[in-house]
Design a protein around this nucleic acid. Structure first.
Lengths: 224, 224
DNA sequence: AAATAGATTCGTACATTGTACGAGATTTGC
DNA sequence: GCAAATCTCGTACAATGTACGAATCTATTT
């Protein structure tokens, strides 16, 4: 390797890492989080290694451990970084607002597909709670009975979660898609209904998401 | 893929493994799958190692690789093993049938919580397709318009998926639960709505699942 | 200026993992 | 009996997370 001998390396990173401010500290939780996000975006869930992260930051591997407990903590950090909600606060049309919150949520996660795989495995960070809070407010504003609000929130959560996790895993991978396609050969005989309807061929993910969401909201909407 | 050359080879293991039938082959895809399931049930997703699996089977580690491509294939095998659908075939009440299929699906996955984490990441195995086929048939029988069937299936899929994945990760872990609880302290001020409704305190998972499912089915049910 | 205490960095070492490779053993087909 | 096919498995290696403790840096006090 290049930087082996001697070893009196300055605090300046000599390498390829993202480096800008001369007086910014090399290692902070924020920089670690941001770099982890970049790396996850570029190379996926398994692509993030502590060694790689350190290299990208221009630091030694073990230096990271001063700032984060372990690799799990890096995941938590990256996840919460990505899930911050920036959106309009004003609400007028409750149903439109809900749709907006959920579509934004889904879009955010799909921009960083690893987050969809990660979120269900971790505790709810503050940025998720913000989104849930907003949902709750919309539902109440929309006249959903108090006794129904919790069930409604969870069903919406479940729906976005399922849709996004599914999309994140089936979408980008060509291998999966081919496998499904291949399976369609036998579909005709074994699975008549879903064969005929072309269930697995549908790739209008956004439209399908929206239509299913409408089903759900139809069911939730206050009946009078 | 299913059957190689039929052959009764009685290999004798010298070791410590679980051993019963004298003339059953030590290693088959079925035995590997079954043992993997046991091990996953006992020790979770990260608890399954090729070495551990081999030891439990009383074989050498590398012997496994004659029967399975790699560790991923073991996951696929275990997943499909667990997801086999045994249920009544007769359908009378379409809505009741759908509820049954989905509740059985969810229950099956929660009996093996790792499966919930795994399923979204893998291609759809035959046993999943059986369940989807059944859903499709129920919906059609229930008078859901053809153009709506696919969206309905996916929304049901999304819902079960989200609910189960969420339950599987939040449910058994006490740490997560404590973290949420702890967070409730600040809820009062930061998150008034979900604080007031006790969203995170609700632990009637089954009931909530059922109520949300009813919302969704209300929305899907043929209108008029 | 010198000393000291804390904060931060990081090289080395190790245990664990999946699995490539190829040699050995066993079974099957003739 | 023999050769090919089938199956088993020990060894070896590369990649990973991280424990440990030494080295360096910064600020504060003397």
């Amino acid at each position: 390797m290049a930087d082996k001998a001697g070893g009196r390396r300055g605090r300046r990173a000599q390498g390829q890492g993202a480096e800008a401010r001369p007086d910014e500290p090399i290692l902070t939780r924020e920089r670690i989080a941001a770099t982890a996000v970049d790396m996850l975006d570029a190379k996926g869930l398994d692509g993030l290694t502590m060694r790689g992260l350190a290299e990208a930051l221009g630091s030694g591997v073990m230096s990271l451990y001063w700032h984060v407990e372990n690799k799990e903590a890096v995941f938590d950090l990256a996840l919460d970084t990505v899930l911050e909600y920036r959106g309009p606060t004003a609400l007028q049309d409750w149903r439109g607002d809900i749709v907006h919150v959920l579509e934004d949520w889904r879009a955010t996660m799909l921009r960083h597909p690893w987050s969809a795989l990660l979120l269900p495995r971790r505790a709810l960070g503050p940025n998720i709670l913000v989104r849930l809070e907003r949902l709750s407010a919309c539902l109440s504003a929309g006249g959903v009975a108090d006794v129904d609000v919790n069930a409604a929130i969870w069903s919406l959560w479940n729906y976005v979660m399922g849709a996004t996790v599914t999309r994140a895993s089936f979408g980008p991978s060509d291998a999966d898609r081919e496998a499904s396609q291949e399976r369609l050969a036998e579909l005709g005989t074994l699975y008549p209904s879903i064969g005929r309807s072309g269930l697995l061929l549908d790739d209008d993910w956004d439209g399908t998401f929206r239509r299913g969401l409408d089903f759900l909201l139809d069911g939730i909407a206050p009946k009078r």
